[in-house]
Design a protein around this nucleic acid. Structure first.
Lengths: 144, 144
DNA sequence: TCTGATCGCAACTTTTATTGTTACGACTGA
DNA sequence: TCAGTCGTAACAATAAAAGTTGCGATCAGA
């Protein structure tokens, strides 16, 4: 399926900023985060831009520019991040409209939509149960 | 996210075969199913091939060739279909290995993997609660 | 034995989304 | 003014899914 790592990278960035701030720094740069995540700074800026739109982080420009958390890690859940960075639904419908003359073709989309909605709702509940604080704790618990 | 319709198309195909058999026909052709789903027969054959490997359908060749259910719709769940046609995990890790010298880069993958596993387990449980019989019922319930 | 319909499968193209890269203007404290 | 970084557009590269073409294999029935 999705082979899409946006949620992973966004969580990585938030955990990184959170830890960095706990070490006494005010802001983190996209350059630093990109190095840790082994990707390009622009990719990080794009993702953090979406998180800013969702009110999870803030950014400063000019000298001493960089990113900081707008909320405590304890109050940010994976659902917040997921909704900020994931555009579409989990499962897609047919690319082309199915044959409306066919009973199945006619009824399949409303049927699957209803089923998918309730499944996604469950997924959301699960994502909402994990905070970024949990993530950071798990990250730091990794044995060296 | 995934914009991947494999589960939808596979469910469509199974419901189609199921209904067609209830109408007294022995086998359904990939051509017929493709017409209903508005896609190419080869796409259907590929998907059904995966469902056959999972023991959900069977196929006959030669004259009177086509596809038939290997199990009742009541005994096939969306989880069976999902596992048959979806290759990878729901959420992907970093494309390139994160910086192992960094505390976050080092611990992020095991941490996220653990979190994702439990979330996917919940997703599986939800998918297992819906049978293809449920899907067909919902499809036929669509108002004309 | 021949035939027609369909599967099985490989190879290739097209489409779409994500990710990566380059470039450059905007911003701001020193 | 300057150095450092964000903001963002534009484009290239990568990857996965979906679509297409072609052809050999299969087999009931003529």
């Amino acid at each position: 399926m999705s082979a899409n790592s946006r949620l992973t990278i966004a969580a990585h960035a938030l955990a990184w900023i959170g830890l960095y701030q706990r070490q006494g720094h005010e802001v983190a740069t996209s350059e630093q985060i990109a190095t840790s995540a082994n990707t390009n700074p622009v990719v990080i800026r794009r993702l953090l831009g979406e998180l800013r739109r969702a009110g999870l982080v803030g950014s400063r420009r000019g000298v001493g520019a960089g990113w900081s958390l707008a909320r405590e890690l304890t109050s940010i859940t994976l659902l917040d991040v997921y909704e900020a960075v994931e555009p579409g639904p989990l499962f897609a419908m047919h690319r082309a409209t199915p044959d409306q003359e066919c009973v199945i073709g006619y009824g399949i989309q409303p049927a699957m939509q209803g089923i998918y909605e309730s499944i996604e709702e469950t997924l959301r509940r699960e994502l909402a149960r994990v905070t970024l604080e949990d993530v950071l704790r798990d990250v730091l618990a990794a044995p060296r």
